[in-house]
């Protein structure tokens, strides 16, 4: 099978102007992937599916990944020569620069070819940010297997798939508000809150049961003890 670099070069020849780059996997598995821009993603996906040498007819796995924004601290050694004594070795000062890497959401597709029995070819789509630009094009019209998996990424990560025929929550219930697979998701405190009778139900409950009988106070005064016999008195 072609390497990701070869696929990238062929795609760039076919789609001039498309954003395609190879994301190197530093791990031992070395499953490198292609990063595609949203503009040409649908056309490239169709090309990958129909191209006679690749023929990636099965989209096996669709994964959502959350990358929240993070501060990257870079340490740099800067050497400054002493102006008073130019002959002396320069002074080395450690300088730290902070850089804010913007957060984004990512969708990873694993493709295989059943016809040619090769794979995986992996590609990724990234959203602009995690809030108002969390949209990528849907690939359900290209591979039907994306239908439920993209719905799952929408449900758990909050990635909107543009062009999905039926984009609804799938594992969480419809009234649920948040996206639980995000890294900064906080479980609500009242997760196991159960409603207790209130309002009209409480009134009804009160009317249903008779009020408990009032407690009768126990006698506090003890009966007087019999008087002791007086000495010297005649019986």
């Amino acid at each position: 099978m072609e390497s990701p670099e070869q696929i990238r070069d062929r795609l760039l020849a076919r789609f001039p102007g498309a954003e395609i780059s190879v994301v190197t996997n530093p791990g031992i598995a070395a499953q490198h992937s292609l990063l595609l821009g949203a503009a040409h993603a649908r056309a490239i996906a169709e090309f990958l599916r129909d191209d006679p040498t690749l023929k990636l007819d099965q989209c096996s796995n669709v994964t959502g990944i959350d990358w929240p924004e993070k501060e990257i601290v870079e340490t740099k050694n800067i050497s400054t020569p002493d102006p008073a004594n130019p002959a002396a070795p320069p002074k080395v000062v450690e300088q730290k620069t902070k850089r804010l890497q913007l957060g984004f959401l990512e969708v990873v597709y694993h493709l295989y070819s059943i016809t040619h029995r090769h794979g995986p070819v992996i590609f990724r789509l990234r959203t602009g940010n995690r809030t108002d630009q969390a949209t990528v094009p849907s690939l359900t019209p290209v591979w039907r297997s994306c239908e439920f998996q993209e719905r799952e990424a929408f449900d758990l990560f909050g990635i909107t798939f543009d062009g999905h025929p039926d984009l609804r929550r799938i594992l969480m219930w419809d009234e649920f508000k948040d996206h639980p697979m995000r890294r900064d998701y906080a479980e609500p405190d009242d997760y196991e809150w159960e409603p207790t009778p209130h309002g009209t139900v409480l009134e009804k409950t009160k009317a249903h049961y008779p009020p408990p009988p009032a407690l009768v106070a126990a006698p506090t005064v003890l009966p007087a003890a019999p008087a002791a016999p007086v000495k010297g008195a005649t019986p």
Binding site: N25, P26, G27, I28, A29, A30, Q31, S60, N61, H110, P120, I122
Partner: peptide
């Protein structure tokens, strides 16, 4: 602790 990277096994 595996090295940073990713893998898909099936």
């Amino acid at each position: 602790r595996p090295k940073a990277g990713e893998a898909y096994g099936r």
